[in-house]
Amino acid sequence: MAEAAPAKIAKLVYVAGFLPTNQQSVFELAGQDTQSLLGPALSTSPDGSLAVVNRAQLVNIFCQDGSAAVQQQVLENYRDEPAGPPAEKVTLSAANYGRVPRYYVRTLQDHALSPVLQDLMLRATPVQKEYRLNSGHTPHLTNAEELSGILAEIAQ
């Protein structure tokens, strides 16, 4: 959306998110993440349309730092995702995407998107400000109050 309509986006906030560069796909980025537990646990559905995470690995990948209730919530609500979008290369220009202020919330205990890959992405695509949470991949579930404070600060 920031590339297509930058005037409609005040700020972009990435929370434990992939931060691709122009003509890069999420799969390309993920392939660089040798410390991620997600890649080895990922497969596709028989028809190739869905990315499927090994159910036995869900908690360790996404919310190892969560309470038992949060971990159960993740298990109950997990759904396979379409495989197509992560394979598509993004088109990002300095004139559009580049003019939208970007903020990044790093998750220091992330097993899905390792801190090493987060470092690489932030070197390739600088942001206005970086925040750090001592959290796994789902701080909205495990560190909601701290994440809310960061989001409120960015919104100001």
Rank of each mutant, 00 (worst) to 15 (best):
A30H: 04
A30L: 13
G31E: 03
G31K: 04
Q32K: 14
Q32C: 11
D33F: 03
D33E: 08
D33V: 00
D33A: 04
T34P: 02
T34S: 15
T34C: 06
T34I: 11
Q35M: 09
S36K: 00
S36G: 03
L37Y: 05
L37P: 00
L37Q: 10
L38V: 05
L38W: 00
L38K: 00
G39E: 02
G39F: 02
G39Q: 12
G39S: 09
P40R: 03
A41S: 12
A41M: 07
L42F: 04
L42S: 07
S43V: 08
S43N: 09
T44S: 04
T44H: 05
S45T: 07
S45A: 08
S45G: 11
P46L: 09
G48K: 01
G48F: 01
S49L: 13
A51E: 05
V52Q: 00
V52T: 04
V52F: 02
V52K: 01
V52W: 00
V53M: 15
V53L: 15
N54V: 01
R55F: 14
R55S: 15
A56V: 07
A56I: 05
A56L: 04
A56K: 13
A56N: 11
Q57R: 14
Q57A: 14
Q57I: 04
Q57F: 05
L58I: 10
L58R: 01
L58A: 08
V59S: 02
V59K: 02
V59M: 05
V59H: 05
V59Y: 02
V59G: 04
N60Q: 14
F62E: 00
F62Y: 09
C63V: 12
C63W: 03
C63F: 05
C63D: 08
Q64L: 14
G66C: 06
S67M: 10
S67F: 07
S67E: 08
A68N: 12
A69I: 08
A69R: 13
A69Y: 03
V70F: 02
Q71V: 06
Q72N: 15
Q72S: 15
Q72P: 08
Q73R: 13
V74W: 09
V74G: 09
V74E: 08
V74C: 10
L75E: 10
L75M: 14
L75T: 13
E76T: 14
E76A: 15
N77T: 13
N77A: 15
Y78R: 06
R79N: 07
R79C: 05
D80C: 05
D80W: 07
D80G: 03
E81W: 10
P82Y: 08
P82V: 11
P82I: 11
G84D: 13
G84P: 02
G84L: 13
P85I: 07
P85N: 03
P85Y: 05
P85Q: 09
P86R: 00
P86H: 01
P86M: 01
P86I: 01
A87W: 09
A87K: 06
A87V: 07
A87S: 12
A87Y: 02
E88A: 10
E88P: 01
E88T: 09
E88W: 09
K89M: 11
K89V: 04
K89F: 10
K89Y: 06
T91Q: 15
T91L: 13
T91H: 13
L92C: 04
L92G: 05
S93V: 09
